[in-house]
Design a binder for these strands. Structure first.
Length: 773
DNA sequence: GAACCATAGCTTTTT
DNA sequence: GCTATGGTTC
């Protein structure tokens, strides 16, 4: 057994220490995942039964990876280790135990953030509160943070010290009741209800306390109050609790994470042992020095210095762009240079940014250059209307009490049920405290409601018969076949097929992909040990995150937020939007604690890079349609010059002497200044890229994180172009060469793409090839 | 009841 | 500048 081979002494110490509380302070890139997997393997090697080990990770993907690694080290016993996120663990726990609460039934559904927002809006309406004064998102955040501190509606009302808080307390109380009526739990409930069950039921508590002899929690610095409490209860019997984390990487304070959980671990468990992992295996000395310099500016912090035996490496490069388009072009051309000059793969590179809104311009730039990319987050597969509808059907069939989902689909496809009808039915349901489904499925009730005519009763009867029918076949069919049946029987597909509009076609594609997701779930069920039924499938899709589905293995550039990048690493990293007000974000400028969290976020970003780091910022940026000027981020100034070279105007060899002042209209940058027919209206590079983006997002059903198709055409300097030739571009299709300028390395082509205007391209970067004309 | 048009609000970060 | 929402019109 070579569990210990390849580990340094500190790592070995952590892996060997199995009994009692253990705190592993693991700096960025210090081999934390390796230590965790080896430690689990070591437990198994000591004949600890796998089902008595509970390991909590931050994402489902991390859990799956860890399971695979343990499997490779020690074999199939890995399958029976409890290995998941807090939320998935709670969902599983509650499936077994929730009925003890006498509030929820075991076929509960899980509402995601947007479902829960819809419920909050309904509550505001019911309480006659103005959405402008009580922004649903703030109310939602307030309720969520209450739940993270394990406060129910009554406790919250007691602690409410402002008028706003009192109103929120009212909403909270109605909200909680509504969720119960729908037999639904939101994300925070998963934790809160689990803790409540464990606290109130001695038998359940003891059962799980005895079951889990060994507990490991990764990313402990990002646990919130509820997670802390849950961990504490579960570990109370055996005290074999190992937590791993890095206070410098705590970046989820806004979500209720409490950095004190890790800071106080040693006082919570006085007998705890502590192992510090401070040798970094990931980054160059320059990158690490920059990271240390930045994080050193935080006041509230235990000092710590990561070190490495890696080479010094290249300096960090900062680039001051004119605007966000110039920034995107710098990144795109740098990516191409890294590819052509240093032979870097697309998959070796990632762009990290503070806000999702920044991704659009970057995407447009990548599409112009034909760079394949994967975006994490943003417009999500599961946020699409047709997918949410499909999920709503499954939820109603699984849990007919779920009126929120029922309302969503009762008239989709159109069944001739208008708002007035539904309002009447809802009012009746609310007044008589029965579920909406009970109302519509009972002829006696329906005939007792004034204004419900036969014309409305007929479709309701057909609808509820269909649901009953589907409930009957739910257990009989394999999951994916059942999902397919639901989509067909409901008439959903038929409705989309009736009108052959392009967006309907893409919806059908997406629904096919959804059936594909169900099929994958079936296939993976033997690996994960989960039965592939509707129940587990619904939990699964509620709890998977974007980062879980992102296919980072493909050879594509990855675009994501700094938060999503936690735990990942890339040879080449770009941090975009390094501007005061964007990063650090404007809302944190006056809050010292939040500013420190921004700095930690910056630290996380820098330490993702293995070999080369670029940091870019723009003189001005379009925000809400207004051009805004920002100052460079303070984090840039916190990196000493000895580790960073600062570019202001891009060095270029194309003779664009005026590159920094080229384009006042905000189109393109020095890379494309000559592409427009002079004097005419700009061909609208942004416009066509956006259209291309939309078309692609619609068409590309397979890409669950939105991805560009990898149909890559490599630049080819051997072709001699002349006007009139036909060229095929990776993204724009076939166009006609309008003109050829320059020679050798600097051949510049103007190509007319039908419907998309004339594009100017440097041959050495252009992803084009000869097309038959 | 459905399609179209105007406007407000938006941008922190996510399980 | 974009998008989701709500209002108005047919």
């Amino acid at each position: 057994m070579d569990i210990f081979s390849g580990l340094n002494p500190k790592q070995q110490e952590a892996v060997a220490c199995l009994e009692g509380p253990l705190l592993i302070m693991a700096g960025a890139g210090s081999g934390k995942t390796k230590v965790l997997t080896c430690r689990i393997a070591n437990l198994l090697a000591h004949d600890v039964p796998p089902y008595s080990i509970l390991a909590i990770t931050f994402t489902n993907k991390a859990a799956a990876e860890m399971r695979e690694r343990v499997d490779r080290l020690i074999g199939p016993a890995a399958k029976s280790v409890w290995l998941s996120t807090f939320h998935s663990f709670c969902a599983r726990f509650l499936r077994y135990e929730i009925e003890a609460s006498s509030i929820y039934k075991k076929n509960f559904v899980i509402y995601d953030a947007s479902d829960s927002k819809a419920v909050i809006k309904a509550c505001l309406k019911e309480l006659n509160l103005d959405e402008k004064q009580y922004a649903p998102s703030s109310v939602q955040a307030a309720i969520s943070s209450a739940k993270n501190m394990l406060m129910g509606p009554r406790a919250f009302a007691r602690s409410a010290d402002s008028f706003f808080q009192q109103k929120v307390a009212e909403v909270y109380s109605v909200y909680a009741k509504k969720l119960q009526m729908n037999n639904a739990l939101d994300f925070d409930d998963l934790l809160m209800v689990s803790v409540a069950l464990l606290e109130e039921h001695q038998d359940i508590r003891e059962k799980y306390q005895h079951r889990f002899h060994y507990i490991l929690v990764d990313e402990y610095q990002d646990t919130n109050g509820a997670q802390y409490e849950l961990t504490k209860i579960l570990a109370a019997q055996h005290h074999n609790l190992c937590v791993v984390g890095d206070a410098d990487q705590s970046i989820y304070g806004w979500r209720g994470a409490d950095i004190r959980n890790i800071m106080n671990f040693e006082s919570d468990y006085p007998e705890a042992q502590t192992v510090k992992l401070e040798q970094n295996y990931r980054s160059t000395q320059n990158i690490l020095a920059a990271a240390n310099a930045v994080i050193g500016h935080n006041e509230n912090r235990k000092p710590k210095k990561l070190w490495t035996e890696n080479p010094v490496g290249e300096k960090i490069t900062s680039y001051l762009a004119n605007d966000e388009r110039d920034e995107a072009n710098f990144i795109a051309t740098t990516i191409m240079k890294q590819r052509t000059i240093f032979n870097a793969a697309y998959g070796d590179m990632a762009i990290l940014y503070r806000t999702n809104a920044q991704s659009r311009v970057l995407e447009e730039g990548f599409m112009r250059e034909g760079i394949p990319y994967t975006m994490v987050g943003g417009l999500k597969f599961y946020d699409r209307k047709e997918i949410k509808d499909a999920i709503a059907y499954l939820r109603v069939i699984f849990n007919p009490m779920d009126s929120v989902s029922l309302m969503r689909i009762i008239n989709v496809p159109k069944r001739g049920l208008g708002d007035t009808t539904l309002a009447k039915l809802n009012a009746y349901a609310l007044e008589n405290e029965v579920s909406l489904f009970d109302v519509i499925s009972s002829p006696e009730i329906l005939s007792g409601i004034p204004g419900i005519t036969a014309r409305v009763r007929r479709p309701l009867e057909v609808f509820s018969t269909m649901i009953f029918d589907l409930v009957g076949s739910m257990e009989m069919l394999p999951l994916s076949a059942f999902v397919d049946r639901v989509l067909r029987m409901s008439g959903y597909i038929a409705e989309l097929e009736r009108e052959p509009k392009p967006e309907n076609e893409s919806r059908i594609e997406n629904l096919k992909e959804f059936v594909g997701v169900a099929k994958d779930f079936e296939k993976n069920s033997d690996k994960s040990g989960e039965i592939a039924n509707v129940e587990n499938f619904l939990s699964h899709i509620s709890l998977i995150s974007d980062i879980d589905t992102a296919d980072i293995d493909l050879d594509r550039v990855t675009l994501m937020t700094l938060h999503s990048a936690k735990g990942l690493e890339f040879p080449i990293v770009f941090m975009a939007g390094m501007e005061e007000g964007l990063f650090p974000h404007a809302r944190t400028l006056l809050e010292p604690e939040e500013m420190e969290e921004e700095r930690r976020t910056c630290y996380v970003g820098i330490t993702r890079a293995q070999r080369k780091l670029y940091m870019t910022y723009a003189r001005s940026r379009m925000i809400y349609g207004h051009t805004t000027t920002y100052l460079p981020s303070r984090f840039l100034a916190e990196i000493p010059d000895e580790y960073m070279e600062r570019l202001v105007v891009r060095a270029n060899s194309y003779g664009f002497a005026n590159s920094s002042v080229v384009d006042q209209r905000g189109y393109g940058s020095s890379f494309q200044p000559k592409t427009r027919p002079s004097g005419s209206q700009a061909p609208g590079a942004g416009q066509s890229a956006r259209q291309a983006l939309q078309a692609m997002q619609g068409r590309n059903a397979a890409g669950m994180p939105i991805t560009a198709s990898p149909d890559v055409i490599r630049p080819d300097m051997d072709i001699v172009w002349k006007a009139g030739d036909k060229a095929r571009h990776g993204k724009w299709g076939v166009g006609t060469i309008v003109s050829v300028h320059g020679s050798g390395e600097e051949v510049e082509l103007k190509i007319a793409f039908p419907g998309q205007g004339i594009k100017g391209l440097m041959q050495k970067y252009a992803p084009i090839t000869k097309a038959d004309g």
